[in-house]
Simulated scan of single mutants.
Amino acid sequence: MTSKIKNTTKIYSFDIKILDEVGPWLKSMGIKYNATRFGISSKILKKWSTDLQTPTFRELWGITELMDLCEFYKSFHSGTEDIQSLIHSIKGGSTTIEKSQKCYARDYAFELKIASRFKRAGFNIINDKSHDVVVEKDGSKLFLECKRPRKDTTIVNNISYAYHHQFKDLQNKPEQAVLCIDLSNILYDRFVNSFTEKGEENIITNKEALEEFRDNYDRDNKYFLEKNASEIVHGVRMVILSYSFPIFREYPSDSGILSFQKFNHFTRITNFSDEVDSIVSQALNQSVGVQFGDDAVN
């Protein structure tokens, strides 16, 4: 069976006013918002918007996570799902992303991010602790395991553990198992170091450079997984690779005009082209953001 790679790339548009709703929402669940890494990033963002003091590169990572929190709010604040335990689990951790540090708060945040994308596409989030995320729509139930490797050498170990242990009791892995992998930490080395090695604090890029990076990286990932984990890639319904990172995008190209954005990308490596695959595609396409293009500037 041939697996195909399918892309969804988004630019996240952000309205700072939503922070006035997110803080009270968290407080209603007993979370001292101002003391969390999100509250700290919120202060940095507001200072940026009022004093025009550009955050450091690492602070921009924190603002990117703050954008994710706003997405969670949009997805779950008026729903019936019991997500309080997950929300409490994601509040910890340092303000900036430290790629060498194990951070369970960010692991849980990735699970919640995946759940929110399926939720916004009409999936029901099932209260089932057997897997990281369990979703159902129109009689189709999918079981998702979420991994957040911190370096290339741990990717195969991560998904191998999910396939052989966490999916061990799932009777129909080829139809119902979905592996979700967040590669954002690894992207620090692949994309960001080319800027920081030059002593630059910010990533100033353009559409063409992002598209080239995205396409090359997707091809590399498919080749890597087919070569090193073929049994797993063809033994589950699909593998979803995702990553996001902060950028300053120059638009129009060579204009010197910059826009801060969160670059969101999903790659699906799938063995199927059926109704369920179409539904999952909608789950990613209908997540927040607009299609990557020249009209995506904030």
Rank of each mutant, 00 (worst) to 15 (best):
L241T: 03
K99A: 08
I63P: 02
F195K: 08
F110W: 15
V280G: 06
H234R: 12
V280M: 14
D132P: 13
M238G: 04
D277A: 10
M67W: 07
I44W: 06
K222M: 13
D138G: 03
Q101L: 14
V178K: 04
I203T: 08
G293S: 15
Y12W: 15
S89G: 07
S255K: 01
Q291C: 05
R37P: 06
A115S: 13
I126Y: 07
A229T: 02
W25P: 08
N185I: 05
K137M: 10
D128R: 08
I44V: 10
T36E: 06
L86C: 09
D218G: 10
N221W: 13
E208F: 07
T153E: 14
A209E: 14
R148T: 06
T96G: 06
N221Q: 10
K10M: 04
S130D: 11
L183S: 02
G289F: 06
E212K: 12
A209V: 12
S49M: 01
V233A: 04
R58F: 06
S273Y: 09
Y223G: 02
S116K: 11
C146N: 03
S130I: 04
K43R: 13
E211Q: 14
V233M: 09
T153S: 14
E211A: 12
F263N: 14
D294A: 13
S75L: 06
T2S: 11
D138C: 09
E231F: 01
S244Y: 07
K113P: 01
M67T: 05
I114C: 13
V276T: 15
N193Y: 08
C103K: 09
L284E: 05
H165F: 07
N34M: 09
S3P: 04
A162K: 03
A105E: 07
F191T: 05
S49A: 06
N271A: 14
K74P: 00
P24T: 09
E201D: 13
S78T: 14
S160H: 07
L112M: 15
E175W: 00
R37H: 14
A296S: 15
Y104G: 09
F72G: 08
K168M: 07
F224E: 08
S75R: 10
F72Q: 07
W25Y: 15
Q176H: 01
C103P: 00
L45Q: 02
Q291W: 05
S49V: 00
Y104V: 12
G256W: 03
N157F: 12
F191A: 05
K46I: 04
I181E: 01
K91D: 01
D51P: 00
I31L: 08
R117M: 15
T80C: 05
D218H: 15
